[in-house]
């Protein structure tokens, strides 16, 4: 089990003494090699959860185990956590600072004990994994790249350290459609190669098509979790319809309203297309 969370709560005080409970009694476990999506409205506690998992905040109560070890226990070596868990926060491109892309990506490897050749090989691998031509990009200034490219360079910097667990906070917000698709494909490949991935996103299509499991947070509580498709189907049955619906599900709902119900399992675009093909070529109920 890569991550296990037990009764996790986190609260903080606002400037005028108001207590905010950002997370309330959250429990779940995440298997090695899983690709987990985290869904919820702004302010539901998604980012706080990632910060707790990365050991950047300490919980008010409850435990977090990473690879079986409680990360907030006395005597736990936080530096090993930094090695195991890589975090990509919102707008990571703002952290770029070096004069060349290669130096920027290599920065996190400075005290890793790797030889110069090993560092170069890692940097090359990380940049190629994020879809760059290494020879072309290595000496460019990171600050002169487009927004989408900057983001990929910043992520390569985290990737270069080869973390076992990768946490992404809204990694595709602000990327254009091709940038989104590329990014998700790269992350899918990293996940295929064995890295456990947790991704916070507002993009329902990205969550539906790429993640294996979903956690749904609402006002600090974990209100649903499970295999992605099942969670999407359950969310559709909840009263507040618009939340957590893919575009394909919304169209299925509109069709049901005009007495053209499709299977409740329509979640992704591909599901919608195949259900409609069947329905409209006379293959459905006649």
């Amino acid at each position: 089990m890569a991550i296990k969370i037990e009764n996790l709560s986190y609260s903080y005080l606002q400037p005028f003494g108001e207590k905010v409970e950002a997370l309330k009694n959250v429990s779940c476990s995440i298997a090695d090699g899983d690709f987990v999506g985290i869904m919820g409205h702004t302010g539901c506690g998604k980012t706080t959860l990632l910060q707790l998992l990365a050991g950047l905040r300490a919980p008010t109560s409850g435990q977090i185990y990473v690879n079986g070890e409680e990360i907030n226990a006395k005597g736990y070596d936080k530096s090993s956590l930094r090695q195991t868990v890589g975090v990509v926060f919102q707008n990571p491109e703002y952290q770029l600072f070096a004069t060349t892309v290669e130096k920027d990506v290599a920065f996190g490897l400075k005290h890793s004990g790797l030889s110069r050749q090993e560092v170069t090989a890692r940097v090359q691998w990380a940049l190629e994994t994020m879809g760059f031509d290494f020879a072309k990009i290595r000496s460019q200034s990171p600050l002169a790249l487009s927004g989408g490219e900057k983001r990929r360079v910043a992520i390569a910097g985290v990737l270069a350290r080869k973390p076992e667990i990768l946490l992404f906070d809204e990694p595709i917000a602000g990327l254009d459609p091709y940038g989104r698709e590329n990014f998700l494909r790269f992350v899918g490949e990293i996940n295929q190669a064995g890295t456990t991935v947790l991704m916070v996103s507002h993009n329902m299509e990205a969550l539906a098509e790429y993640t294996k499991h979903l956690l749904v947070l609402e006002q600090g509580r974990l209100i649903d979790s499970g295999p992605t498709r099942e969670v999407f189907v359950r969310l559709k049955q909840r009263k507040n319809g618009a939340f957590g619906q893919t575009k394909a599900q919304k169209i299925a709902t509109l069709l049901a309203e005009v007495k053209l119900p499709l299977s409740s399992g329509v979640v992704t675009y591909a599901d919608l297309l195949s259900a409609l093909k069947q329905e409209l070529t006379g293959g459905g109920r006649g």
């Binding site: 254009d176 459609p177 091709y178 698709e181 575009k247 394909a248 169209i251 675009y269 919608l272 297309l273 409609l276 093909k277 409209l280 070529t281």
Partner: peptide, 18 residues
């Protein structure tokens, strides 16, 4: 860019003879 979902669906359905 990726066209709006209804546009994609229209063209993909055409390819399937719908």
């Amino acid at each position: 860019l990726i066209p709006p979902l209804p546009v994609r669906l229209y063209h993909d359905l055409r390819q399937a003879g719908v």
